[in-house]
Design a protein around this nucleic acid. Structure first.
Lengths: 240, 240
DNA sequence: TAAAAACCCTGACAAGTATCATGGTTTTGA
DNA sequence: TCAAAACCATGATACTTGTCAGGGTTTTTA
């Protein structure tokens, strides 16, 4: 099993390990104490929905541990996963900032402890604390950069290249070194991977199998291992 | 000809018509006067480069009138247009905010009057003025939403659907009603359109011709007219 | 623990697009 | 104003990827 997060946790924001690279990293002690009193922590089970697309944004969620997927339902019923969120990530920002409905649905992939912060409190915090406002701006810029890179990738790259990029990003966020290989410690289906890079499950499966055969990755059931990230990256550059 | 912007303009930010829906809309008179003293307006000629990808961000540019394209050069030499900027749009935000290099190149498509605002002044303004910080946050959120929609479109839609979406967005920004039709008052090549939606010039030309034949749009040389935006939108929904 | 559901895998085939090639037209710039 | 460059247009062809179908495997749940 992966990290042990299937039991309920409580704890102060002041010592929260997920805070370090979140938008609350720079907060003053005073504001942190307020945040601590205001937030509510809950254990969500696999499959539970944090918020639904087009529903009013009541607050933001901050992931303590676990896995959440953010997805959009297009008219024709297909779901597109726009983002995976894990420890330290904040969800529901957009809806809260614009005081409108959530633009997407957030669904828990694995049992997760997640804090809820009321929208009023959050907006006040941004107004009151220049550090918080600044952190927020920096975070938004970072997410924009990611989004833009993703959009450009979709524009210019083949499915195989996109899949490799996805695997590499998985390695960075969920990678665990094990006997010289990187093990991607993330429970995700081929269909979910497909919906992240705009292709079909069949195509993902085919490309993974092919890369397995050629030794660039190794599959063991649904588990994926990457012997060499460099070699994998190279494969995405020059398509022979 | 389109609007007359090929001669040099100067003027105060206080009465600038492009300010209304820019990030400077909410600025106090005091800060506006400072901005006015600090900014420098220049006339840029077609083809000139405002800033180059990977060069240090010295400040932001605010388009007074004209057309600018923002593009990225991928390794293989292809250029992807990520955005078109026009009156009121601000360019170079990301590089300035992160105090790093510009993530893209900005190139003038048509003679344009553009203001330059030094990065130090801009960052100070954000620090000093909560309204400015708030405007900035709102603008970033808006741009993120656009980016995300674009990425999702690339994920799920066919080239024809993407092209129609592009034309519809052109209608909204550059559309001029003329004898019952909407004329897209924007000088852009088929190749540029292709690079915005991740396809080739040939495919764009083919689809435009086909839609011309079926009467959904009308081409006159490189000019494009849309008789009915509703009908065009419908065409993108149900592909027969 | 057994049945049901979800998921993985492979093959055959079709559709959508990219690529290459060629010629006509418009725009640019000396 | 005229040549050069950039751009538009169309055809033929090949390739990438999606779709559909069938069967095996793993996971979930009652």
């Amino acid at each position: 099993m992966t990290s042990d997060c299937s039991h309920r946790k409580q704890g102060s924001c002041l010592v929260c390990p997920s805070r370090d690279d979140s938008i609350f990293a720079e907060l003053s002690t005073k504001h942190l104490e307020e945040l601590d009193k205001s937030k509510v922590t809950n254990l969500y089970r696999k499959g539970q929905v944090l918020f639904q697309q087009d529903s009013p944004a009541l607050g933001v969620f901050c992931v303590l541990d676990g896995q959440v997927k953010v997805l959009k339902n297009s008219e024709d019923g297909k779901e597109t996963i726009t983002r995976l969120a894990t420890s330290g990530d904040v969800l529901g920002l957009r809806g809260v900032l614009t005081e409108s409905n959530h633009p997407a649905t957030a669904k828990v992939m694995q049992d997760s402890n997640i804090c809820f912060i009321d929208r009023r409190f959050f907006k006040d915090l941004i107004q009151k604390s220049p550090e918080a406002a600044n952190s927020l701006i920096m975070r938004l810029v970072k997410e924009m950069t990611k989004l833009e890179e993703h959009a450009e990738e979709m524009n210019t790259k083949t499915v195989k290249q996109r899949l490799i990029q996805l695997l590499l990003s998985f390695c960075q966020t969920y990678g665990m070194r094990k006997a010289g290989e990187v093990f991607i410690d993330l429970k995700i289906t081929r269909a979910e991977m497909a919906s992240m890079i705009g292709t079909t499950p069949e195509t993902v499966i085919r490309i993974l199998s092919e890369m397995d055969s050629s030794g660039i990755i190794r599959q063991d059931g649904k588990k994926i291992f990457v012997p060499s990230m460099d070699q994998l990256a190279e494969e995405s550059g020059v398509q022979i």
